[in-house]
Write a protein that binds this DNA or RNA. Structure first.
Lengths: 146, 146
DNA sequence: ATGTATGCAAAACATTTGCACCTGG
DNA sequence: CCAGGTGCAAATGTTTTGCATACAT
């Protein structure tokens, strides 16, 4: 349950934190948009009539990241996306038109990465693989706005 | 030759453009640092006594990118890195401590990416794979400042 | 000449931080 | 009650833009 997740992270269970975690879980309204920018979270809260400062959203997201509750991604463009950490590592397939994000995991790729890091004497800490393209909807007719 | 590359891009051959292209080719002084931020380029120019505005550096780099002369990467942190485009696609192994960047290309990974995009019905346009870790120098003693 | 490029300063963003006030345990 | 959290506004760092001047062709 959300409350225990926050407590477990060594943070006080406050209203803003619970609301933000809930947004990350539900993605706002329609599901699917699990990859949100700080400002998306802020805007969704406003839409719901919840008043939380943008600075707080940033602070909380950063704390959640430090606690391993969410992960931060730098797709293209200056802004970061946040996503609930569900324990399972995965990479992203991102639609360059509508922004849709599909997650995937490929063991062959994971294995090659470990090999490559080793070949160059690097300690493997993390990686980000983003495949950019057009999703089926955008190849066809109208993009589905995210 | 650098001059023809600029002309070929439909841009006038000006001093700032030639200087910036040269910095990207030589990486400043010691070789190796081929992945530079806009401000790195600006600073290197200053060091050489060349006076070029930072805004111009940004403008020129953006134009070069549009012309396919350089490519822009968003590693971690708010800033972008620019690198001379040498026609050969490759991915990056980045040291999270000293910022050193090693390029690599793995055909097995490339192939799996094509397969994954296809499986999800995506048109593959591009991708970025950054493996983050500690380079040999940083694992041992002192990091080599970039 | 003349359409582009440049430099500077100001604007635009995304994100962070200082500080007085508020709140959860 | 009190440490920690929040809101607001101001600060930061990066990148973009407006505009008058300078330059390549």
């Amino acid at each position: 349950m959300t409350e225990s997740q926050i407590k477990q992270a060594g943070l006080k269970v406050t209203l803003p934190r619970m609301k933000i975690l809930e947004i990350l879980e539900t993605g706002g309204e329609g599901e699917g948009a699990r990859h949100l920018r700080a400002e998306d979270v802020y805007r969704i809260l406003l839409t719901r009539g919840e008043v939380v400062g943008l600075a707080t959203v940033y602070r909380v997201l950063t704390q959640f990241e430090a606690a391993g509750l969410v992960s931060r991604h730098n797709f293209e463009g200056g802004h970061a996306f946040f996503e609930l950490e569900r324990g399972t590592h995965h990479d992203h397939l991102v639609c360059i038109k509508c922004g849709r994000v599909v997650e995937f995991l490929d063991e062959a790729i994971e294995e090659r990465q470990r090999a490559i890091a080793a070949e160059h004497g690097f300690t493997l800490e993390d990686h980000t693989l983003n495949i950019l393209g057009l999703c089926p909807n955008c190849q066809a007719g109208q993009p589905r706005p995210s």
